[in-house]
Design a protein around this nucleic acid. Sequence first.
DNA 1: TCACTCGAACGTCAGGTCCG
DNA 2: CGGACCTGACGTTCGAGTGA
Length: 261
Amino acid sequence: MDGMVEENGTSTGAGPADPLGSASSSAPASAPHVVAVTSIVQLTLPTQAPSAQVQSVIQPNQQSVIQTASNIQSVQLPKGNVILVSKPSSVIHTTQGTLQTLQIKPEPNSLVSTQGQSCSDDSCSGDESPKRKYREMLTRRPSYRKILNDLGGAEIAVIPAGALQTESGLHTLAVSGGGAGGAIVQYSTNQDEHFYVPEDQTRKRELRLLKNREAARECRRKKKEYIKCLENRVAVLENQNKALIEELKSLKELYCQQKTE
DNA sequence: TCACTCGAACGTCAGGTCCG
DNA sequence: CGGACCTGACGTTCGAGTGA
């Protein structure tokens, strides 16, 4: 349990907020400005901490915890509420029977409902649609490389530096000519079979691979962030649970005392 | 020092989803 | 419907740790 949610994907270097911290303490001077107007709750994070790390555990119809690196703020959320967060790319977890993750859109004053419509990632564990169940049941077929290896038919050639290698066993062997439009790239699936691909197609492919590479990186970053958020959420909920158990215990004792008097 | 294991990060593919 | 984007799966690489 080391980190908090990294808002905007940036690590602040500031000390992580204590997820088990003083949830009942009064908000400090740098507390988020909270405005509750009927069904809209606006959270404005302190400007002193432009990259404040935020974790929120929000429960409908209960006192909910908005947690940042610098403070903790309790918010009463009425049913059907809308959360307005001034910080872009914020991630908020709510509990409404099931976990929901909300990705606030980058535009300022984005409106996000906590009722699940805006759920943006796989954290919506409550989504039990048949489509999703079916998707989860799907298993991926083996890669082309594995299939080829199983068949024992295609050797993976030694690829020269800079050449492309794909799982289908296609290799860029040579680029002839440097002029626009005229260049041709030769591909081969094995030593006996060759075909040609125009350079613009290879450019498109390289661009696609580049974008996908960056997308994969971003996806992993978000996944790590989400896992951290879940871990923090576990800690916060465990703390809440402990506090509730203690409260129940003391109330029981108080009740017994009054009863014996 | 070397071989080995393990985990993290990465690149790519494939399939799903979203949106104009 | 097609293209862009997202993400699970798979294979690879690399560095750290460990035991012989």
